[in-house]
């Protein structure tokens, strides 16, 4: 006898109440129950591709490696919630400017990992960016434009903070 899990969580700033089968993966809950299909699925069971990366309580995690019921009482941010007030996140703008995506399949996961990363390291070196990208596979770009975009976004955020101060 399966006991469904009923939980409340804040997803992209909105309070959500849901009832799911316990085995429901967080990624499937986001995509199939909430229609938030920006979170992608790239690998099978291993959790190695990073395309499903979201932020759980402001930290990057792979949503295929969590059960939906585990977010009960927590906050999740997906790529749909990254832009604020109708304008792209500086990282999204930097990706566009640096042409840091080709097919775009890995992009949401990289945005959700790197937006967390540059929030904690405001002036990362290229080596640090590459080390932080280990959990995200990209089969198109060869990564160099992604590294450039992340570096530019970190600069832009720092400059904006400096201007505001």
């Amino acid at each position: 006898m399966t006991t469904n899990v009923t939980f409340q969580a804040r997803i992209n700033g909105q309070e959500v109440t849901a009832t799911v089968s316990p085995r429901t993966l967080l990624v499937d809950f986001l995509r199939d129950h909430l229609g938030l299909t920006g979170t992608h699925v790239g690998c099978t069971f291993e959790g190695v591709c990073g395309a499903c990366t979201v932020q759980l309580d402001d930290e990057a995690v792979k949503s295929c490696m969590l059960l939906a019921g585990q977010i009960s009482g927590h906050q999740v941010l997906t790529v749909e919630g990254l832009a604020q007030g109708g304008s792209p996140h500086p990282l999204q703008a930097a990706f566009q400017d640096a042409h840091a995506l080709q097919c775009g399949y890995c992009t949401p996961g990289i945005l959700m990992n790197m937006s967390d990363f540059i929030g904690r390291n405001e002036a990362p070196t290229d080596d640090e960016i590459r080390a932080a990208l280990v959990g995200n596979l990209c089969r198109c770009t060869g990564y160099s434009h992604i590294v450039e975009a992340v570096r530019n976004a970190a600069h832009a955020i720092k400059a904006r903070k400096g201007a505001a101060a």
Binding site: T2, R23, H33
Partner: peptide, 14 residues
């Protein structure tokens, strides 16, 4: 049915 990889789990306790 929503595609799910794990075998059925009867309950998830928190």
């Amino acid at each position: 049915e929503t595609p799910m990889y794990p075998a059925p789990i009867e309950s998830l306790l928190s």
